[in-house]
Every structure is written in C-alpha cells, then in structure tokens.
Design a protein around this nucleic acid. Structure first.
Lengths: 214, 214
DNA sequence: TACTTGTCGTGAAATTATTCACTTATTCAT
DNA sequence: ATGAATAAGTGAATAATTTCACGACAAGTA
C-alpha cells in the first residue's frame, strides 16, 4: 500500500478519523448527501477547514450539492486503510487498561486489541472483554507481529517497557503514562496525559473566559 | 483572582501543566537548578519553545545559569492556581469512569473528583476510590457549586446530560464520549476521543514514516 | 429557458506557532 | 582576575494552520 506521502498537513490528518466516523454514522442513518456546513455544525470544525481538508485529496464534492456520503465514506475508508485490520497490544491491565479492554474500539474502527499483558500474576490467564491477559515477562513471545501498543503501566515502568516493546518491533505507542518516553526517530508516540488534560481545561476556564477552541 | 488575559498563546497554555508537573518532580528529587536544554530532553519539547513559553511570563531564568527549580515551581503554582483546589464531578461510572475514580488526580494536582453519578441503581450508594456514587436523577441536588465535569457516559446520553450540567452551572467539560456536544459560548469543552487517537496514531504510522511530533 | 440559490474549491490574507541564531549576562575553572 | 563556557531571552525568519471571501458551477424552481 503506497505510502501516500503527498503532504497532508498533520492538523488535517488528525481530523480524518473524526470525519470517517461521522460519515459512517450518517451512512448508517441513511443520509446520502451532506454539506460542509452540516458537517461543521455536527463536528464543531469550521466549514472552510473541512472543505480545505477534503480538498487535499482532490475534488470530492460537487458545487451546489455538497458531498455524497457514500462516495466520501468509501474514499476515506481506503485512505484510512479501514479494510485491513490493525492489531493492537495493551500493556498494563490496571483500571485504565481494563477500561480499554472493555471498550469496543472495533465498532467504527479497524483497530482491535488482540492481546494484553500485566505484571500481576493474579490477572494472568484471565480474559477481559474477550482478550487474554499474559504475563509481562512473556511479552516478547506473545506479541507476534503487532506493531501498535497502548501503554497503561505505572509511570515507573514506562521507559523500561517501552524499550522492550521497541526491541520487539513495535513502532507506534499510545502512551497514557505521564512519562515522556524516549524512543528512536522511527517510532511514533502519541501522548495522552489525563491529568494534564484536566488541569489544562481548568486553566483555560479561568484564563480564557469567552473563546472556544479545539 | 484577576484573569491574567495577557495573551498567552493557547499552545503555550496547553503545555503549562506539563511544565508544572515536571518541575514538581524535579523539586521532589532535590534538583535545584535546570536548563531549558535539560527540560527539553526530558519533556520532548524544543528548548527554544520552552524558553519562549517561559518568557511570556517575564524573565524567570538567569543567563549562564538556567532556571531555579523552586522559584519556577512557585511561579507556576501561582499561575496555575495550584493553591485553590478545583472540585470535579464525574458523570458515568462505567469502565472509564471507574478508572478515573481510582486515578489519583490530586497527586501533583489541584483537581479532585468530589462526586460521581450513574444511572445504574446498583452502583448508587457505593463508594469507588473514596468517592460516593449518586443517582443521575439527583445530579442537580448533589453538584453543589462544582463547575467542572468529566463526561464518561454512553454517547446517546451525552448531549442530554451536557444540557443538564450546563443548566446546573457547569462551565467546563472534559468529554470522553465520541459525541461532539453543543454548548453555549461560555462553556469550555475539551474532547478526548480515544478511538480517534488510536486511529490517528495508526494513520500517522503508515503515512508519515519518519518524522516525530507532539 | 432563465433565474435564483446553494455550495464547493481555493487564492490570498490573517493568524498562530515554531525555530533559528545572536546578544548579553552569568557562572565556573584556573 | 581573566577567559572560556554556558544558557537565557528575543528579533526575525519560517512554517503551519485557519479563515475570509469570491468565482464557478450545479441544482432546483418558475
């Protein structure tokens, strides 16, 4: 699958999954046509931004009409590789990890947690949300060729586990620990820091009383 | 508390809680001095960006020396209002909600979940992580003057609960549902969409093979 | 057919954010 | 005391992103 490196801006790329899911919902609801204005209102993204984002992929709409939902959806399905499934490993079956195991990512999505690991022997062997928990010691043997990991371990373990993951061939990590892990250039990390997000919200509430963003 | 509206860029504001936590950790470790270069390596933020960010608040460092950890920490403590505690309500005690109740936000942080709500009568009356769960019907009576809510309800309930929260005086919502909720201008919403984050990571892995960001 | 309306796609402008690179002040070693 | 090394702060350049606003064309209507 040719890496479609025609300079889609990162900001645009981050919105694609949102667009995809929303179009999918429209399709399920039986809507066959949609305008950038409607999309804008529903997704809270400026309509010009939506048109601009779509335009990076070519002329997907029709003037005076809008976008054909099915066509657009099919287009994004291909673009986002929704046909091939992406297996994911979850490391750390604590509260947050358990929540993800029960969370049905596959719903509108090509990603599925296939295997989980934890250091607590009492959790090993059990299945949570249909996913078997292995011991963290056996991680390398049970990872297979999975290249995406969700990291929900204690912060003290984060770097150590990261190093092992990378050695085992993982090239993408969704990091929920507060640790800013160090990885080679070739590995992509997205951080989601829940405490920071909450604190950031509070800061914005106090200091930016009226505007709205993101 | 004067709203310090001296045009701190949003991108900077979003990084402040990260800076704060990191400085706090340094302080705990007994480090008294730090340079933008060290901070950069640890937090994976360009050192010029760090210096620029700090400079919006004035000259906080010393040339040839760096920053005094304690001073900087004290400064950010004030800036981020870490002295006053911010009470938070959690709506929806499912998997994700439960994880948050057990998550100790207060650790490095001025925020604390004070009360939780759920529609499931079996959960009502119990305490999880020391926080009592009330029935969602009694939300308005038990919110007190809380103005921040974490929303972890099913997507179908999101808008409805949001409307009630706003009517009850909530002005900031951390929304974990996939719904892009509609709120008045005066209410701030931050979305964290876990499925989108995961999918976005996968997209970047496939299409932006070498670069690194955020 | 002719007119009106809707809506895309996009150049250009505006805004926002990042990064370079240099000046200046300070520290540290000798 | 002196010189070398360090590192902040910042003007200016660059990059990235958003937004405006309009031309062009399709769809619907009379």
């Amino acid at each position: 699958m040719m890496s479609n490196q025609n300079k889609i801006p990162q900001a645009t790329a981050k919105r694609l999954p949102l667009y995809y899911r929303f179009l999918n919902n429209l399709h399920i609801k039986g809507k066959s046509r949609v305008s950038s204005k409607e999309l804008s209102e529903a997704m809270k993204v400026d309509s010009a931004t939506i048109r601009r984002d779509f335009s990076y992929f070519g002329a997907l709409g029709k003037k005076g009409y809008g976008y054909n939902v099915e066509y657009l959806l099919g287009f994004f399905r291909k673009t986002l590789d929704q046909d091939e499934n992406t297996p994911v490993a979850l490391i750390g079956v604590g509260n947050l990890g358990t929540a993800f195991l029960n969370y049905n990512f596959t719903k509108n999505n090509n990603t599925k947690i296939e295997v989980a690991f934890d250091a607590d022997k009492r959790k090993v062997g059990k299945s949570i949300g249909d996913i078997e928990v292995h011991h963290i010691e056996d991680m390398e043997q049970n990872l297979g060729d999975i290249s995406v990991a969700i990291l929900t371990v204690p912060v003290s373990e984060a770097q150590n586990i990261t190093d092992r993951l990378i050695k085992a061939g993982v090239t993408g990590i969704l990091n929920f620990t507060p640790a800013r892990i160090t990885v080679p250039e070739s590995v992509r990390v997205h951080h989601i820091d829940l405490a920071v997000e909450l604190q950031s919200l509070v800061y914005f509430m106090k200091h930016y009383p009226l505007e709205n963003e993101e």
